[in-house]
């Protein structure tokens, strides 16, 4: 770990000033990922701006019937919020499927969105990694890649985004609120937060330098059954091999609307509109579910050890949609 300086502002304005005052400064909230990366010198910030004292830790109702989640709301608190439990079950379940109790107590909403990949080679500074060291190569391609991406990959990177929470927020069409150091604010649909790796896997989001997520807003609760199904190697404390967040509105064996987002597949929560369009108005049967699976996986590529994710997505999706259609 490289020596760094540290400050703990109490206002947004001070935080914005602090992040721009020194080169290579970084925000730190829960620190559940950043500190590990700093110990390994995968991340080497020279200055940490601790945002934990900023007034961003509330979950509030919005005027349109949705929910505004402060950036510093802890994962445990968000999962336990009665409004989330009642109206956004997919989010509560996704949060509780992630990490461990201790980590969820520390981890924050914005920090969870911005956590970095769990690709083994990203953490191993003795190996090439384009995300860590642009241009050095990708060790995962041709290496052990069982947990890595099959969708939206590039020749430079096959990392996945590891969050469960983000997958649920993606299916709920969440919007991020941010402020920039110049004081301007903007709203970013969650679909536009994370980038695919392309030629620049080191650039993971569309946030601008110093731009800070202050809140995540959820639209009014969607109609239908909400499911989060996480498939993993052990029953707790394991990242998703594949996860499915689904909101399915079905009646009498017909699907009115199905929304689906996937974790464990790509550099960002994966969602395919075509698959949802095909399901809208379709009979809830195996054939429709299989077609949805094909549409979700269109254009994907396996890298050997992770080839099993293709059948796993098809099977898990069919199971989730069957359960949803039957419980509607």
């Amino acid at each position: 770990m490289k020596a760094f300086t540290y400050e703990r502002p109490t206002t947004l304005a001070d935080a914005a000033k602090a992040i721009m005052a020194k080169p290579n400064a970084k925000f730190i909230a829960g620190g559940t990922n950043l500190l590990d990366l700093m110990k390994l010198e995968v991340e080497t910030p020279t200055h940490l701006v601790d945002v934990n004292r900023l007034p961003l830790d509330k979950v509030e109702d919005t005027s349109d019937g949705g929910l505004k989640i402060g950036a510093l709301v802890r994962n445990s608190d968000l999962a336990a919020d009665p409004r989330v439990r009642k109206n956004y079950g997919v989010l509560s379940r996704a949060l509780l499927a992630g990490a461990s109790g201790q980590l969820r107590n520390k981890a924050t909403t914005a920090g969870n969105l911005l956590q970095r990949t769990r690709c083994y080679y990203f953490y191993d500074t003795t190996k090439p990694c384009n995300k860590r060291e642009p241009g050095s190569g990708c060790s995962a391609i041709g290496g052990f890649n069982r947990i890595l991406a099959i969708m939206g990959t590039s020749d430079e990177c096959i990392a996945t985004h590891p969050s469960d929470m983000a997958v649920a927020m993606r299916v709920l069409d969440a919007t991020l609120e941010t402020v920039s150091p110049d004081g301007s604010d903007r709203k970013i649909p969650i679909a536009d937060l994370h980038r695919l790796p392309g030629k620049t896997p080191n650039i993971e989001t569309n946030l601008k330098p110093g731009e800070m997520i202050t809140a995540v807003t959820l639209p009014p609760p969607p109609k239908g059954v909400q499911i989060y199904r996480k498939v993993r190697d052990r029953a707790s404390y394991a990242f998703a091999l594949v996860s499915v967040a689904a909101v399915v509105d079905a009646e009498g064996g017909m699907i009115k609307q199905a929304r689906m987002a996937f974790g464990g597949l790509a550099h960002k929560p994966w969602r395919v509109e075509k698959a949802e369009q095909v399901l809208a108005g379709a009979k809830a049967n195996a054939e429709a579910f299989a077609q949805a699976g094909e549409d979700v996986l269109a254009g994907g590529q396996g890298y050997g050890h992770n080839d099993f994710k293709f059948p796993l997505v098809r099977r898990t999706l069919a199971s989730v949609l069957t359960t949803a259609a039957h419980s509607a």
Partner: peptide, 18 residues
Amino acid sequence: FGGFVNHDLAEYHVAVHA
């Protein structure tokens, strides 16, 4: 390369309580 790919307890999976 030789050596081990997974070398922390997040990715070397011992059984957990669950």
